[in-house]
Design a binder for these strands. Structure first.
Lengths: 224, 224
DNA sequence: GCCTAGTGTCATGAAACTGTGACAGCTCAC
DNA sequence: GTGAGCTGTCACAGTTTCATGACACTAGGC
């Protein structure tokens, strides 16, 4: 998933935060309860969790404790109460930061980045194009939070295209860079591979939004 | 020194903080200006720096930037102003936290501990991935509390993979790092060793949860 | 010398990946 | 509108890659 996990039960606050954080360029999945979040935390592998403290059922501090029992996942606790004792308890539960609502989106964003920077997971070189996230370190591609499996050649092709966003790359060039240079056969090879990649990453492969055909020249990667 | 470096120009605030933090069990050295602090930071090697933003001469944010240029030393910025923009600027300068004065000693202490805990876990000898605990100091690996015996090569391989969690490491790299650099050997050697490690640490070696094969590229360690 | 744990190599089968060609569908120039 | 040239789509067989287990070689303890 490679994004933020948000847990907030109040729908209006949740929507506002979703909007604000998405606008700051984060990808995000949100839940209303701690139970749901804990259930999905293993499979979705978020980079950071933002937990409201006051939740129905398991509260945010307890969710934080349970996360800590297994994982180093960074956690920010979010609360309406600014009580000093709460802050101390929250941080002792293993939270990395404790933020009092209402919070300016820019401030929350800055705190998220500060924590991610330190967690160093931010150093993994990741590129994001809307819903499409390409992690060059982990060699993982995710679309709308769902991991996409690409074969080695497909991945090399996509990385090559992404390396030159907006540029048209012709078939000869792609054959040289992605396949072995010694390749003579200029068949439909590139086309077929592009098609395979599209089938996996394009929501509607017939109307590609990422990899565009430039008739007579080649292909161009340009984010939507 | 292994303590806190405090930079605060107001003598009364400085004395109050010194007293409070000492009472919380921290050892501490304080300076009135950023220049003095920067001068001593190399030799004294503090664990964490707490910088007032408003300082005569170089201000706290600038001190933070200069520290960042050299070092990972954790930094807390301390300020009388709670302006959102200040927070963002401060955090972007590389600060780990931004605290507004006046601050309850307990809260400051909790924030210091949260940051130190995280900084320590990054370099700590013991890393936990769910059931798997790797003690780099004692060179011991335990799975669900039971000690696992790994041979030297197996252990070096596992440590190398764990050193880059989530990253795909190719066979050439692993051969260079884990085995001798001058190894011409068949890269199937890596496969065999990975197999052996899996047989020991994976509950179901055929469906690995720790060491994943990335076909065509190499192996990736990522916790379940 | 003998035994053992550790290590590198190899054969094998299974699974995944890839190149290829045929053909349909589309686009553009005329 | 029409035809030529491009491109999309698909199935399939050959190839590559990997997991697995067996085995030989080595160094060091006894």
């Amino acid at each position: 998933m490679a994004g933020i996990l948000l847990v907030e039960d109040d729908p209006s606050v949740r929507t506002a935060l979703e909007l604000a954080l998405t606008r700051q360029g984060h990808s995000l999945t949100s839940y209303a309860t701690g139970e749901e979040a804990l259930e999905h935390i293993r499979s979705r592998r978020p980079e950071i969790a933002i937990l409201d403290v006051m939740l129905p059922g398991i509260d945010g501090v307890e969710v934080c404790r349970r996360i800590r029992r297994l994982d180093q996942l960074p956690v920010i606790l979010l609360t309406a109460r600014g009580d000093d004792l709460d802050v101390v308890v929250g941080l002792e539960a293993g939270a990395d930061d404790y933020v009092v609502k209402p919070v300016e989106p820019r401030v929350l964003d800055a705190r998220i980045r500060a924590i991610l920077r330190r967690a160093e997971s931010a150093t993994s070189d990741r590129i994001t194009f809307g819903e499409l996230v390409i992690d060059r370190g982990a060699l993982k591609v995710t679309l709308a939070g769902k991991e996409i499996h690409l074969t080695p050649t497909e991945l090399r092709l996509l990385l090559e295209l992404v390396r030159h966003p907006g540029q048209v790359l012709n078939r000869r060039y792609l054959l040289r860079e992605v396949w072995d240079h010694t390749h003579v056969a200029d068949s439909r090879l590139v086309d077929a591979c592009v098609q395979r990649v599209r089938a996996k990453i394009e929501p509607v492969p017939a109307e590609p939004v990422f990899i565009h055909t430039v008739r007579g020249f080649g292909y161009r990667f340009s984010p939507p």
